[in-house]
Design a protein around this nucleic acid. Structure first.
Length: 618
RNA sequence: GGAGACGUGGUGUAGCUGGUCUAACAUAUGUGCCUGUCACGCACAAGAUCGCGGGUUCGAAUCCCGUCGUCUCCGCCA
């Protein structure tokens, strides 16, 4: 608000204070004298008449320059080019009915400027800001390098604005429900569990490091100990791991924690939150309540802890049916304690041998050793008197291992009709889940079986508390080590850690993990037992988490919470393919920022001050 | 750490079974013409030595090796 009044530009702008946004002008404004300012979106020069589409954040409006009516303004318009910054004052007039543009919200009116001023010129932009269906999409490195131009595109303006709507709706909802937004440190302590930390050297404490938070997990729990009862934060989190389309090194969480709640309270309230956000930001009503599924069920039926329910193709478990079968691959997998499961791809019996071999290669990248298949060919049209349901034949390299009645039994279990293709994976349960789960999604894409208009939410509950890490040769927390254990599973902690279920839950939307949380341990003795199960000695536990254990001795209320991935949530709402499209300044998959050039080298002096010496430099 | 795809005028692609490729198309840009367009139209022009380095060859955008960058996936991450 405190612009420097001595700036020459401000002087030049005298008399150009904007009266309205371009995109909001309607027939109600006809006759008004308006002052607009914005960017030249497009220029159409008819020799005589010049049309300029003037764009600001609110949208577009057409300016018309008529040399006969206002030669001076027309001359000024002659020099305008794409992305010039312009102020214009003129009268809003009604368009002739024949000249109305129904594609524009402002298409019934136009502005007849009397004065135009170029506030700034622009080079020819390397990005098509005024993109249309036939301007080629600009590739991502260019977009990231000129991000400020990329963000001018209407599509990106919508995404970023949607993101704002979402965070506003979140804050409004949580405020109304008694949550306090409390900031937590960005320079904090490195913790051993979980992702790799981003480290920040301490100048005043040479040789020591802060870590940027992977999440404010411990702080929000401490805030519960402090008695704030309901906390939230829209907070940046950092994880130094390899990136994906939906993973950035820094990302934003909607972080929530509540005291005196059980799992059910959290799920209900958070479901209300998500529903309200959708309603406010997109005007869309969600189907409630969200369905729920245990982790075991999700893994058994979809091979994933975040199943995409827009797609059918549940797994069919054939382990018992093929036990001792003549097909040794199946029989041996079952004998070794493995499983045989299948998915049925509707209408895919027409896949060529080459297509199917390609699918075989695909499952191999997900750990399977191979892919068995049976194509149930449809009988030719108008075939026998039995009608179209008749199978012409079963095309399959493995059919010969099954007698006709076994084949019929398999087909019945698969529920495969004519024209369907069944694909089998036989292996240990984890491999079957990974391979068949990935295959299911791949087939859904290839066969276009995913309903893109649907939003399928799902709560996944009862996650295992631990999973075994081959790499570290010990049990590690699947969620995090502060997660409470389901009532009754506590005795299993020592005897069978793999069977212990946690009070942990994820919210999944369309196969994307939107958020996850848990009820936390609030007693020191229980927390110590979990650390013990994780292989942390009491000394290590005290060294790493002493402050938490200590806090737990001063009256910690039962508490729990959740954190949503804001970037992913907005991505799905915006229909974007990657969270990079809903983050103003994202990084590449190698975690660099193409706009600023970060990360960069620093001067030897900076390093010396920090007491650092690079062991390797480029 | 691993696998794959891509890198050619400002932008996006084609060319890539080696030779009239003296690099094509679209779009953007410039100039001229055009008074109702809105993806304006028409004409003309300018603009790339094909990411970078090396090799094979009489000859490389094209083949090979290396390297850099971007993207997708596995591992990793919740």
């Amino acid at each position: 608000m405190t612009h420097d009044q001595t700036q020459p530009r401000d002087q030049a702008r005298q008399g150009f204070d904007r009266t309205s946004g371009c995109g909001g002008l309607t027939t109600k404004d006809v006759g008004r004298e308006v002052s607009l300012a914005g960017w030249v979106h497009r220029r159409r020069d008819h020799g005589g008449l010049i049309f300029i589409d003037l764009r600001d954040r609110s949208g577009l409006v057409q300016l018309v320059f008529n040399p006969a009516k206002n030669p001076e303004a027309h001359r000024a318009a002659d020099g305008l080019r794409s992305e010039f910054v312009v102020a214009a004052r003129g009268k809003v007039i009604l368009r002739d009915p024949a000249q109305v543009n129904p594609k524009l919200p402002t298409g019934e009116v136009e502005v007849l400027p009397s004065v135009v001023e170029v506030l700034n010129e622009s080079l020819t932009p390397p990005i098509y800001v005024a993109e249309t269906a036939d301007t080629p999409p600009v590739d991502e490195p260019t977009r990231l390098h000129y991000r400020y131009l990329d963000l001018r595109r209407p599509r990106m303006q919508r995404n970023i604005s949607l993101r704002h709507q979402v965070t506003m709706a979140v804050r409004t909802f949580l405020d109304r429900h008694g949550f306090l937004e409390i900031e937590t440190p960005m320079l904090t302590r490195s913790t051993p569990e979980g992702a790799r930390d981003y480290l920040v050297p301490s100048r005043v404490n040479p040789g020591r490091f802060y870590a940027l938070p992977q999440s404010p997990q411990l702080f929000k729990q401490l805030l519960m100990v402090s008695g704030f009862e309901r906390y939230f934060q829209v907070v940046r989190c950092f994880r130094d791991e390899d990136l994906r389309a939906d993973r950035q090194p820094e990302f934003t969480q909607i972080d929530v924690e509540m005291s005196f709640v059980e799992q059910e309270d959290v799920l209900r309230l958070m479901e209300d939150l998500v529903a309200e956000v959708y309603e406010k930001a997109l005007g869309r009503r969600l189907t409630r309540p969200f369905p729920r599924m245990t982790w075991h069920q999700a893994m058994a039926d979809y091979g994933s802890d975040k199943p995409d329910l827009r797609l059918g193709m549940k797994f069919v478990d054939l382990t018992e049916a093929v036990r001792g079968s003549g097909f040794r691959v199946f029989a041996e997998a079952v004998a070794a304690g493995g499983q045989v499961k299948a998915v049925v791809a509707p209408g895919a019996a027409s896949f060529s041998r080459k297509d199917i071999d390609g699918l075989g290669e695909f499952v191999k990248t997900h750990g399977a050793k191979g892919l068995a298949w049976m194509a149930f060919e449809a009988a030719p049209a108008g075939g026998g008197p039995a009608g179209g349901d008749q199978l012409a034949e079963v095309r399959s390299p493995i059919a010969k291992f099954f007698p006709p009645e076994a084949l019929a039994d398999l087909r019945a279990r698969l529920g495969a009709g004519p024209g369907d293709l069944a694909l089998f994976v036989a292996d240990q349960p984890a491999v079957v889940a990974a391979a068949l789960g990935a295959l299911r999604l791949e087939l859904g894409r290839r066969l276009d079986l995913i309903d893109r208009t649907a939003d399928r939410f799902l709560w996944v509950t009862d996650f295992p508390m631990f999973e075994f890490s081959q790499e570290e040769d010990r049990w590690v927390a699947m969620h995090h080590p502060f997660t409470a254990i389901r009532d009754g599973d506590l005795p299993l902690l020592k005897s069978d850690p793999g069977a212990v279920r946690a009070k942990a839950y994820d919210l999944v939307q369309n196969g994307v993990e939107l958020g996850g949380g848990s009820i936390r341990i609030h007693r020191r003795d229980v927390q110590e037992r979990v650390f013990d199960a994780l292989g942390l000695t009491p000394e290590e536990a005290r060294e790493k988490f002493g402050f938490l254990l200590e806090a737990f001795e001063y009256g910690t209320p039962p508490h729990g919470g959740i954190a949503f991935g804001l970037d992913r949530m907005v991505m799905l709402m915006a229909g974007a393919e990657t969270i990079r499209d809903v983050i103003a300044f994202p990084k590449t998959t190698s975690a660099s920022d193409l706009l600023t050039g970060a990360p960069s080298t620093v001067s030897p002096r900076q390093l010396a001050e920090l007491g650092l010496a690079p062991s390797r430099s480029e």
